[in-house]
């Protein structure tokens, strides 16, 4: 039964390799589960998020500081975004959140402009000041209408 022992060992190595690969992907790439999930949550309500989805970047001063965790409709009218912000970043109460685009046709992301207040938002708080997505169609029509006047 020496043979079977060897089979057992190789199977063990195989299972270990497989689980290691799966674990590496889950933690490094997917940020799955309690282990990988760090940071605190903030909410913000927008008139129009312009296609921001869960997983979209949250940036401050051009640096990624978190990810969008969830986007859903609030009160049948507005869009509420739940954001996960890295623990080491503190956001002032009067900070300002806006929807931006990387380049002209690139991905949408949420830009947070830091405020002046000394008190900071905690887990579950809301960013009050928001600006909705800049819509190229709106800009164009605005330009046309202003030309008419």
């Amino acid at each position: 039964m020496q043979n079977y022992k060897r089979i057992e060992i190789t199977v063990g190595i195989f299972v270990f390799l497989g689980l290691l690969s799966a674990g590496w992907m889950a933690i490094k790439l997917g940020q799955v589960g309690g282990l990988g999930e760090q940071g605190y949550e903030l909410r913000a309500v927008f008139d129009d998020v312009g296609g921001v989805r869960s997983g979209s970047d949250i940036m401050m001063a051009g640096v990624v500081i978190g990810r969008v965790k969830d986007v859903h409709i609030l009160d049948n009218r507005k869009a509420e975004v739940v954001m996960r912000i890295n623990d080491d970043v503190r956001i002032a109460e009067d900070a300002f959140a806006s929807i931006r685009t990387k380049g002209i046709i690139g991905d949408r992301y949420i830009r947070i402009t830091q405020g002046m207040e000394e008190t900071f938002l905690a887990d579950g708080d809301e960013i009050e000041e928001t600006e909705s997505a800049l819509n190229i169609e709106d800009l164009v029509s605005k330009y046309i209408f202003s030309g008419k006047e």
Partner: peptide, 17 residues
């Protein structure tokens, strides 16, 4: 690496599993 990490979500991994 940064784009790879940013674009892949737990959802993608779960679908694969």
């Amino acid at each position: 690496v940064a784009e790879m990490m940013a674009k892949i979500t737990a959802h993608d991994l779960n679908g694969g599993w």
